[in-house]
Design a protein around this nucleic acid. Sequence first.
DNA 1: GTTTAAGATATTGTATACAAGAAAATTGAC
DNA 2: GTCAATTTTCTTGTATACAATATCTTAAAC
Lengths: 215, 215
Amino acid sequence: MELKRAEQIADSLEQLVFQGEYEDGERLDEIKLAEQFCVSRTPIREALQRLVMSGMAEQIPRRGVFIRQPGPVELLEMFETMAELEAACGRFAAARMSDDDLERLVEANLRCRDAVEKEDTAGYYHENEVFHQEIYRGATNSHLQGEALRLQNRLKPYRRVQLRFRGRMAQSLAEHDGIIDALKSGDSELAAKLLRGHVTVQGEKFQQLMAGLKN
Amino acid sequence: MELKRAEQIADSLEQLVFQGEYEDGERLDEIKLAEQFCVSRTPIREALQRLVMSGMAEQIPRRGVFIRQPGPVELLEMFETMAELEAACGRFAAARMSDDDLERLVEANLRCRDAVEKEDTAGYYHENEVFHQEIYRGATNSHLQGEALRLQNRLKPYRRVQLRFRGRMAQSLAEHDGIIDALKSGDSELAAKLLRGHVTVQGEKFQQLMAGLKN
DNA sequence: GTTTAAGATATTGTATACAAGAAAATTGAC
DNA sequence: GTCAATTTTCTTGTATACAATATCTTAAAC
């Protein structure tokens, strides 16, 4: 870890937080980080500000910035919000997706299917992300798309955890088919409803998520 | 304008951008701003970063940060996203609002009615904000509430413009009643639908918004 | 007169120095 | 020995100095 610029440092720090390198409530020492990244405090402070802005850390004036790992409640809230954002994207996408858009969505889903058949968790994790991003794009609303991407990125590490559980990939894939049908037929309400259900974490899914976080 | 801290500077700059002090595409000169606020470039740069993060400005490496006033398309997109966020809040609020929450919502709406009767545009502007914030709160999802507040704040100056038009306040108020009824009866779908329609900008509303921006 | 290239200038990005305030440690009283 | 107060140390926040790079100016060539 060495010799990076402010923006890259922010990304690196984000990765480190995602990888669980830091405990909840841990203070991010500017000087130590500066030494680790071989830069002065200035770019470190810029990177820390970004972390704070993205909600991954909290800043207490004259005290420092402390990383904030979301607890169960906040995690549920974020998934709930994600579900609503995806539902909104689906609602618009059903009415606005072009044939090309639909084509790319179907192709993304085919790659998801490949990954499931190969039992390639990492592959499915990635292709599933692409699948959803195609829907955000299909909403034809750059702002909404941006918000969806932001939260999707924030929830990345937790979705990864979920996929580890047996049957989860297959179920997810099956739901994709229904979503595609709804989008193809232009049924906004159905697309929204299916996407909401697809993303919502509750019941068994919640148990799995929490169990996965223990490790 | 003088002698402020980084955080306050960010707020002040935000206000200035909201007040239309800066043209679209205008570069925010660090040195000039530093002189205006009687501080060094360091806190100015922190404030600028915040502006960039909140989407009110764009940063081009080694070139500077340029303020980005949203055009008609982006404005519509933001209102569309706001409508979906409000719908989501309404959906949850219908199922989760306590009697106390409903009580506060009704009271906020009473103050809205007062403002309409007094033809107090500024008053309605404020109380209407409170009314919607009560719904965000009623969603009982801090994360979603935060996102809704963020976008509401971003759209503030444009909603202000809309209220100038004759009949707009009365119509808005009438819609509030329907929304309250849906929330009281716990009808999630109806609450979501009504709130979406209440916030969505289209047809005549769009014409008014655009006309108001010309001034 | 236009175009291109080299130099000058200005602005951002980073490093360091300094100031202000908070946490920690030491000393003194009981 | 414990607690309180003062001093010390450490950390953040700000100012300034420096480095790197983009833009502007000027001059020369065609």
